[in-house]
Amino acid sequence: MALIPQKQRTGNRTRGKGFHLDMTPMVDLASLLLTFFILTTTFARLQTMEINMPTANGPDTPIPGKNALNIVLDKENKVYYFFGYPGDEPELKQTDLSANGMRQVLLSEQVKDNPDMVVLVKATAGSRYKNLVDVLDELKITGTRKYALVDLREEDKALLSSR
Rank of each mutant, 00 (worst) to 15 (best):
D22N: 13
M26Y: 05
S127T: 02
L97I: 11
R45Q: 09
L107S: 07
E155P: 01
F19W: 06
N52R: 14
E154W: 03
M117N: 01
Y85T: 15
E155L: 06
E154I: 08
N57P: 00
L149C: 08
L21M: 05
D134N: 08
N52F: 10
L152S: 00
N67E: 07
I4D: 00
T41Y: 00
Y129V: 14
K157D: 03
E89D: 14
Q6T: 13
N67G: 04
A148Q: 14
N114L: 03
G126N: 06
T48F: 12
E155A: 15
Q110R: 15
K17A: 09
L39M: 09
A148R: 15
V79E: 03
K75H: 07
L97E: 00
D22T: 11
L73A: 01
F83P: 06
D156T: 11
F19S: 08
A125T: 14
T35S: 03
L139H: 01
D116H: 13
P62Y: 10
L120R: 15
A148I: 12
D96S: 14
G65R: 12
T41M: 05
F36G: 04
D96R: 09
K93E: 09
M1T: 11
I63F: 05
N114Q: 07
Q6A: 06
L152G: 02
A56N: 08
D134E: 11
T10H: 06
D74Y: 08
K146C: 02
E155D: 14
I71S: 01
L29D: 04
R163Q: 12
N114A: 09
D137H: 12
Y80E: 01
L33F: 06
L160N: 00
G84F: 00
G16F: 08
Q6E: 08
G58Y: 03
N52Q: 13
K17S: 06
T61N: 07
P25Y: 10
D137C: 06
A2F: 09
E155G: 07
Q110T: 11
A148D: 10
A123G: 10
T48C: 06
K122G: 00
S162A: 07
A123C: 12
L29E: 04
D74H: 10
G16M: 04
N57Y: 03
N77W: 06
Y80F: 14
D113C: 13
H20V: 15
L139C: 11
F43I: 12
G143L: 09
E109Q: 14
L92C: 05
T55D: 06
N67K: 13
K112A: 02
S31R: 11
K93T: 13
M53A: 13
A148H: 07
N12L: 12
D96N: 15
L21T: 12
D74T: 13
